[in-house]
Design a protein around this nucleic acid. Structure first.
Lengths: 337, 337
DNA sequence: CCAGCCCGTGAAATCGTTTTCAGGAACTTA
DNA sequence: TAAGTTCCTGAAAACGATTTCACGGGCTGG
């Protein structure tokens, strides 16, 4: 029994045409105050709210933004979506949310779905922004989009992100300054994603700048069961000449690594220092607190929406916006004595 | 430059009427294999995808589910939305996601927005399911909805939840069995929400059943800064005869409480045992691991979607589905020696 | 061989809006 | 008073799909 009160109902009640009702509602043209009052009264009495669908069909524009992220389970993405949601709401828009769940082919399919819904624009975090047929398609169709977390190398792609390389460069520098020489690099399942690559580059650059030998990255599934992590880490950290510190490519991984090291009988940070990346809230709630790079995740989502609107409304050209990161000291990172 | 290829373009290309194209696409009526082949070819060549808007306007039904939650920042809600998303995707639907950010009046407004988009149904977590004008409105309009996390007392409201009272009853029982007699109850900002109330009831019932005196609940903002929590807890736990255990109404709060107690110089669990509620993933990543009630959050989201579909498609009557919880032992809860 | 059926197809109505176009009333100005 | 403005309003045409209705051709059965 959906939607029985349409603009026609209102028009009858107010004794005018539907065109006039539309004009009153959207203030799209001047109306006499008498008519306007009658229309407003009718709207209120009937509880009328214009159908977004009817409106969208005519204008071919919806008040909806499409979102594609890998997963909501990762607090980083959850936080940025939260930022998008509140920024969108301020502008009377809603989010059509989809997640790939790390399924490779899903990106293209989800974008297609969203485009079929005539979203006003898209915000997405993709595996690789460089060679991405889906993004090419959006550009070909002229549908505005903004990337979040991705750092596109190719010009012409709009994005909101932090400078991942600079951030790991700085973080690695802090660890080196604390006296660490052998710093392991532990990567999550994102080893193939563009941002993970950039982070790794920053690590290598910092090591090289200090005249140190970068370690080969060790790839781990984050938030996989801790036992498996312990096993994977045993080889590296239970050897004679082991690293004194571990740089993890994200916070979830870092928290898991701290736990795994503990089960191996290694103390953090006494035996091994650990640092993460992202700055998720819970990093500050654990003990010892997690040393990490604090990235303004929620803000990134909000800025992405803002940027998308400048593109939609003002036709602004795509650009890359770098948001500032800060190093967050934490108990897991101690000077090497 | 949106959407240049419509069903009409396809019809011309295939040399048939738009009605036939529609029939082929939806298999809504038999077509000759020759025509069908031509239409499919045209669809493929043109990359045609039917406009959800056009379709929705005619049928007055969208392939979209509206979601209203308090916040994405809480991993509990993020996880249940993740479950909804994947369940919806299996059924070729997408989520229109909104969050109230704990703003009191927002619920009604968001639901109105979603209804204006002609969502097929709604899934929501509200502050109070008992006396809720918004839900009454949905029922009056005949729009199907399912609550998640809420435990409606009034019959006729569909919901997927755990038995919060039974769960805290069990958890409190475990603590009592471990020898604790004075068990503090710490509540989050949800003190007013129906599920928080149910949890508190379970605690009180368990205490009463054991012939113990329930403590007055202490209300805290969760994930507020730890210092403020330490301050708030100091009075209770630095007294002479202090509780030996604290039951927290959710995991985020519990993690924060553990940290706050630590800053007060109290050891967990040696001096004070702590337990949470929800079973968020990170509870297992911290040390000591968090004792808690494990609730199938993601599953709840998925089940909510499933239930919603039975209501939409089969016209099933609203019902309350209780999902099982399990007590998850953890290092924060130790026997009192 | 003819009547009757079934099957595939197209024309047209419809969904709820926005928007263009034209017309009528009121008012100003010569 | 006539002509020219200005303003407000309504009729009607979109937008892109689904769906009803009717029709024509090829069957089948008597």
């Amino acid at each position: 029994m959906p939607r029985i009160v349409t603009i026609r109902t209102v028009a009858e009640r107010a004794g005018c045409s539907i065109a006039t009702v539309s004009r009153v509602i959207n203030r799209s043209a001047p109306t006499s105050s008498a008519v306007e009052a009658r229309v407003r009264a009718a709207v209120a009495e009937l509880g009328f709210r214009p159908s977004e669908i009817g409106r969208a069909l005519k204008t071919l524009r919806t008040r909806t933004l499409g979102v594609v992220i890998p997963s909501l389970t990762n607090p980083v993405f959850a936080a940025s979506v939260a930022g998008m949601q509140s920024a969108a709401r301020e502008r009377q828009h809603t989010l059509l949310l989809t997640a790939t769940d790390y399924e490779p082919g899903a990106e293209a399919e989800l974008v297609e779905t969203l485009v079929a819904q005539n979203v006003a624009g898209l915000i997405l975090t993709v595996a690789d922004a460089a060679e991405n047929a889906t993004l090419d398609l959006l550009e070909a169709e002229g549908i505005p989009y903004v990337l979040v977390h991705n750092e596109p190398t190719r010009p012409g792609r709009a994005a909101v992100c932090v400078d991942n390389a600079a951030a790991t460069f700085a973080l690695t520098g802090t660890m080196i300054a604390a006296g660490h020489r052998r710093i392991a690099y532990l990567a999550g399942r994102f080893a193939t994603s563009d941002r993970a690559r950039r982070r790794h580059e920053g690590y290598r650059a910092a090591m090289a700048a200090a005249g140190l030998e970068p370690e080969a990255p060790l790839e781990l599934d984050y938030l996989g069961d801790a036992p498996s992590h312990a096993e994977a880490l045993a080889g590296l950290f239970c050897a004679g000449a082991r690293p004194t510190a571990a740089l993890c490519s994200n916070d979830l991984l870092a928290l898991s690594v701290v736990g795994a090291l503990r089960t191996l009988g290694l103390r953090v940070p006494d035996d091994i220092s650990v640092a993460g990346f992202d700055g998720i809230a819970l990093g500050g709630a654990v003990h010892p607190t997690l040393a990490t790079v604090d990235t303004p995740t929620r803000l990134m989502g909000a800025h992405a929406v803002a940027m998308l609107f400048t593109m939609i409304e003002a036709g602004a050209a795509p650009r890359v916006e770098h948001l500032p990161f800060t190093l967050r000291p934490g108990g897991t990172l101690a000077p090497r004595v």
